[in-house]
């Protein structure tokens, strides 16, 4: 009957109530969490990790996922790469008046499915509806809380020369899949977003591998920007080998056509880690055995550590090195 979201769905009255009861609570199964204005989580907790992200992806549905799945995986991954075990999420929806209700359902179901798969609970939510034209369809914010039991295992301060730099698979898949789905530049391909929750894989890694210094998920800004940030933050110089970085052919092709550099394309299901060289092979084996890490590779190593370090270098196929910087400005297709 109601086919679109109207402003009345966001006014806190009867329609809001119905939306919450019939869509959100049913999908997320958090009936027990709704009697107070906050969800109450039973403790005790040792340390906890908290992270937040808003998702504004356009289009909302894309090969390999949708904004709902992305909103779950993105926040789960930020918790997981911080060394935490993701426990709960909150979800804040900002919806444009007129947004199709079936699409909202699809997105919410997709969130619920991914949360279940990742073993986290969506415990609190919020819905705002804004005037047509005040938002582009649907934005979602998720905030995640993770549990850190025992001592925090990530010790970036122990990074030292010779540590291995690894990536869990091919880069640029999400960026290219969105570019194609957007249909603005005429790009056609079957590249799927890599959008996935990495927490189970990371959990295994943390349990079995000693000497993991730091982990990141190279999202906006791509692998290059993520590594530059690691280098600056932890005063280490890293050299990656251009040829070692796994990149799908179709991603290469798309970049060649449009003049992009895959090192700067977004990923949504990849793990970058710096690990003690002694554990490098063990980590690689473990990753390669996991479905999300079959193409994991060692892509470089830490070449210096200390106050004068802090740069990212890439070794070119002809054996020279050049420096990489973080993304400047924004990605724009290049022609001439």
């Amino acid at each position: 009957m109601v086919r679109r979201i109207s402003l009345a769905h966001g006014e806190g009255g009867e329609l809001t109530h119905q939306l919450i009861q019939h869509l959100f609570i049913q999908s997320f199964g958090h009936q027990d969490q709704t009697q107070f204005d906050s969800a109450i989580l039973q403790g005790p907790f040792e340390n906890i990790a908290v992270t937040t992200d808003s998702f504004v992806v356009n289009p909302i549905f894309f090969p390999g996922g949708d904004i709902g799945k992305l909103a779950v995986t993105g926040t789960i991954n930020d918790l997981a790469v911080s060394g935490a075990i993701p426990e709960v999420l909150t979800a804040g929806f900002i919806i444009e008046e007129g947004f199709p209700l079936p699409d909202l359902k699809k997105v919410v179901h997709s969130m619920a499915a991914e949360a279940e798969h990742a073993g986290v609970k969506v415990v609190a939510g919020d819905t705002k509806v804004v005037e047509k034209g005040s938002v582009d369809g649907l934005f979602i914010n998720t905030t995640g809380i993770g549990r850190i039991t025992g001592e925090h295992q990530l010790k970036p301060e122990t990074i030292r020369e010779g540590d291995a730099v690894m990536i869990s698979g091919t880069i640029g898949d999400h960026g290219v899949s969105i570019m194609s789905a957007r249909q603005e530049l005429g790009l056609l391909n079957e590249v799927q977003s890599d959008c996935a929750s990495l927490n189970h894989m990371i959990h295994k890694l943390m349990q079995e591998v000693k000497g993991i210094r730091i982990m990141r998920d190279p999202t906006r800004g791509g692998l290059a920007t993520t590594l530059v940030e690691l280098c600056e933050e932890f005063h280490c110089t890293v050299e990656v080998d251009e040829l070692a970085i796994p990149i799908r052919d179709a991603v290469h092709g798309a970049c060649d056509i449009l003049g992009f550099d895959p090192l700067y394309l977004a990923n949504e299901g990849k793990l970058v880690l710096i690990v003690d060289r002694a554990s490098q092979q063990q980590a690689l084996n473990l990753l390669n055995k996991h479905p999300l890490g079959t193409e994991a590779k060692v892509i470089g190593q830490v070449t210096a550590q200390g106050n004068t370090a802090g740069k990212l270098h890439v070794r070119t196929p002809i054996g020279t090195t050049r420096r990489l910087h973080r993304l400047s400005g924004m990605l724009l297709p290049r022609i001439c």
Partner: peptide, 22 residues
Amino acid sequence: VPAKVIKIEDDHALVDVMGSRM
């Protein structure tokens, strides 16, 4: 960039560059 012709229609063609088409 070199691109392989996959399909031809009038004065247009579908081309492929390592799996990305246009």
